[in-house]
């Protein structure tokens, strides 16, 4: 999730917004495959359309499409595989969202709000 989130960042998470993710927000959620806590950006919310495999998917009223900020080309250049996000595990049910990461309180040089941005093209 660099540069928005760097490894070791300390984040405040607002759990009250878990059920209405807005496009561009950074959210903490439980991965459908593993149940592990993960962090990605909301690329599409309930009812939105996302491009996929030459066509498109429509999000159900209870799911969101969560993507890493980095493209596959960027992670490949860094020596990693593709980002593990909705392109891998599909739409994420909203009840798996833990909350919206909205503020970074450490490290000191990076303190500040985490802005909503346009997510990477789905």
């Amino acid at each position: 999730m660099t540069p928005a989130i760097e490894p070791g960042d300390w984040l405040l998470v607002d759990p009250t917004t878990a059920r209405w993710p807005r496009r561009g927000s950074v959210v903490v959620f439980r991965e459908p495959d593993s149940g592990a806590l993960a962090i990605k950006r909301v690329a599409a919310g309930p009812g939105d359309r996302v491009g996929f495999a030459g066509g498109y998917l429509v999000m159900a009223p209870d799911e969101a499409w969560l993507l890493a900020d980095a493209s596959e080309a960027v992670t490949a250049a860094a020596g990693h595989g593709p980002p593990i996000d909705s392109r891998r595990f599909g739409p994420v049910p909203l009840d798996q969202l833990v909350g919206r990461a909205w503020f970074r309180y450490a490290p000191l040089r990076r303190i500040g709000r985490i802005p909503r941005l346009a997510a990477a093209a789905p």
């Binding site: 903490v28 592990a36 806590l37 980095a70 990693h80 595989g81 593990i84």
Partner: peptide, 13 residues
């Protein structure tokens, strides 16, 4: 102040 939980933003390896 340290976080109680850790969230991952990992890539495949």
């Amino acid at each position: 102040l340290a976080p109680r939980t850790v969230a991952r933003a990992h890539c495949d390896l």
